[in-house]
């Protein structure tokens, strides 16, 4: 089989390669810089060498990262918080979306409009009221061998998780996807005596893989990159997530100075989980974006 190599096709590929390089260059710069001494990073920055691990390549910056902060603890914290938010969020948001997209009740559309409206409110505007709220809420704690009720959620994983489980965007995404599934599936199941939860669990969920994948990726990304909220509510190093860890390397007005090499090494380390998750889910992600008409 022969493929005709038209000018248009060549241009199309050239453009694709150009944009691929454009988006890959920052990553290449970050990874290659993480393998160089800080002096070499700045020496190479004005040439092509900035994007390649050339010269005295070593892992000193990575060693420096592990010496400067409790890397494993920070990664564990972020994985735990992101993981719980994603898993709980998929369940809660898809259930809410199921109700909006598949059931019939008064105020259905108003509810959806209200949820979409929450998307335009920046988190920064509600951060302080939310802080005061969570600081006055009770929680269960384990003390001296018994479960007790304590007031205030600060310095817990809970405070990093609970406010972010339900999300307007995620619900909207599920609603859009669920609406594409034929209503006849529900009707047939109801005739067979299925409950609404059975319809959700046995019919809708198995058919909505791409929506779940997209929601999982976007939620994970948002929580993994959370910075302001952890700065406000986490007052102990043991519970700090990875993004706040970046602050450990900034010290321009100290004898040591800002550790650019270590910043690149740390950035590489904390970018890897995101890249891995995206690579795993990318087919489903693209399929969902294409079918739901939602762009992340």
């Amino acid at each position: 089989m022969k493929t005709k190599l038209s000018v248009g096709l060549v241009l199309q590929y050239a453009l694709a390669v150009f944009f691929m390089l454009l988006f890959c260059l920052p990553l290449l710069f970050m990874i290659s810089s993480s393998l160089k001494d800080p002096q070499a990073i700045f020496a190479d920055v004005k040439s092509w060498k900035a994007f390649f691990p050339v010269g005295d390549v070593n892992f000193d910056q990575y060693l420096g990262v592990f010496e400067r902060l409790p890397m494993a603890q920070f990664v564990f914290n972020s994985l735990l918080v992101s993981g719980v938010v994603v898993i709980a969020g998929l369940f809660v948001n898809s259930l809410a979306a199921f109700a909006i997209a598949r059931l019939k009740f008064r105020g259905q559309n108003s509810l959806l409009v209200f949820l979409i409206a929450t998307l335009v409110i920046p988190f920064e505007t509600i951060a302080m009221p939310l802080l005061v709220l969570v600081n006055s809420l009770p929680r269960l704690s384990w003390e001296d061998g018994s479960i007790e009720i304590t007031i205030g959620w600060l310095n817990t994983y809970l405070v990093q998780i609970m406010p972010f489980i339900a999300g307007g965007f995620s619900i909207f995404l599920f609603v859009q996807y669920f609406k594409t599934l034929p209503k006849e599936l529900d009707e047939a199941a109801i005739i067979d005596g299925a409950s609404y939860f059975s319809i959700y669990w046995r019919i809708i969920v198995p058919l909505a893989g791409p929506a779940f994948a997209t929601s999982a990726i976007l939620s994970f990304l948002a929580i993994w990159n959370a910075y302001l909220w952890p700065v406000m509510v986490v007052q102990t190093e043991a519970l700090r997530p990875v993004q706040v860890g970046l602050d450990y390397f900034w010290a321009s007005t100290s004898e040591e100075g800002t550790q650019w090499g270590e910043i690149m090494a740390y950035s590489t380390l904390i970018t890897l989980p995101i890249l891995i998750i995206f690579v795993i889910f990318q087919r489903a992600f693209v399929a969902s974006v294409a079918s739901s008409g939602v762009k992340g």
Binding site: L140, S141, W142, I147, W153, N155, Y157
Partner: peptide, 8 residues
């Protein structure tokens, strides 16, 4: 919620 009680 409870595992950081001692820290807080």
């Amino acid at each position: 919620s409870g595992c950081a009680a001692t820290d807080s």
